[in-house]
């Protein structure tokens, strides 16, 4: 075997291991973090932890207000962002394709997806909290997070619509369907899997956000669970942030337990997204 061949073989083998290391790097770090969190926090999770109000004493404190706040935010954000996002995606893909205005909108929406979330927080503070006088309420928080995830939903909707073959849209027009009937009856059902996946990923991003909510004035300590969209609120990431910054060791354990709950919600939502995507792909094979 010549020298050059040997060196090439070594390089080949070396790259395989370097590649493996790179692949595992992220996973291993995440696994170490998860295991650490689980060891610290799992023992703290019980019914009392889930159903108790916040407290100065770490052993009595619970995540009820933050958990309920997160659920409120999740539902309100979904109600606001889903119809607007899907409609905008449909418009851009099916109606506004040719105009210069649509081109301009398109570039802007791609840019919006890249704006740091704290900037959305400042926008929300000015528009929703101050100009619209919504205060540091659930609805102000949900509107701000809706802005944040709208570009994601719009882009997901457009991509999903693009996968629907032109031939079946033509078939629908050929039967005398109007544009809206074609969208409603043919395009949207066929694109539903992709749209739904995008929505779930967007919302699971929204419930993990902290920065924009800090800016609009979400509270870390809320003595009661919110009962209407106009109430003040806290959410799980805020609660975690608050507990982490306390000196007592008991709060660090609480934070670990709350992280487990937050991660569980996110994983479940991502799991649903994957399940729906697979199911739809199986149902529709062109």
């Amino acid at each position: 075997m010549s020298n050059a061949t040997r060196i090439n073989r070594i390089k080949d083998r070396a790259f395989k291991y370097i590649g493996l290391f790179c692949t595992l790097f992220g996973i291993i770090v995440l696994a170490i973090f998860l295991i650490d969190i689980l060891i610290k926090g799992i023992g703290r999770i019980d019914w009392a932890f889930l159903s108790s109000l916040p407290s100065r004493i770490p052993e009595r404190a619970g995540i009820l207000t933050a958990f309920v706040g997160t659920i409120w935010i999740l539902i309100l954000t979904a109600i606001i962002a889903i119809p607007i996002g899907i409609s905008a995606g449909i418009y851009l893909e099916e109606y506004g394709k040719k105009s210069r205005m649509a081109n301009l909108l398109e570039i802007n929406i791609s840019n919006l997806a890249g704006i740091p979330s704290i900037i959305y927080g400042l926008l929300g503070l000015e528009i929703f909290v101050r100009i619209m006088h919504l205060g540091n309420s659930l609805i102000a928080g949900a509107l701000t997070l809706s802005l944040l995830i709208l570009p994601i939903i719009i882009v997901a909707t457009r991509e999903a619509i693009k996968t629907v073959p032109k031939s079946i849209k033509e078939a629908s027009f050929g039967m005398g369907a109007t544009k809206w009937q074609t969208i409603r009856q043919i395009t949207l059902p066929a694109a539903a899997g992709g749209i739904l996946t995008g929505i779930i990923l967007a919302i699971s991003r929204a419930i993990g956000e902290t920065a924009p909510l800090i800016v609009i004035g979400a509270l870390a300590y809320v003595p009661f669970t919110p009962e209407s969209p106009m109430d003040e609120f806290s959410v799980l990431p805020m609660q975690i942030f608050n507990w982490i910054s306390r000196p007592q060791k008991g709060f660090a354990i609480n934070a670990a337990a709350a992280i487990i709950i937050l991660l569980a919600i996110t994983f479940v939502m991502n799991g649903i997204a994957v399940y729906l995507r697979n199911r739809w792909q199986k149902k529709i094979r062109w």
Partner: peptide, 21 residues
């Protein structure tokens, strides 16, 4: 109305294009 015209004049395409229904 083009929708009425297409009820009067039906069309079958090159590639079979049934709806995913």
């Amino acid at each position: 109305r083009v929708e009425d015209l297409r009820k009067q004049v039906g069309m079958v395409f090159q590639k079979p294009n049934p709806f995913p229904k």
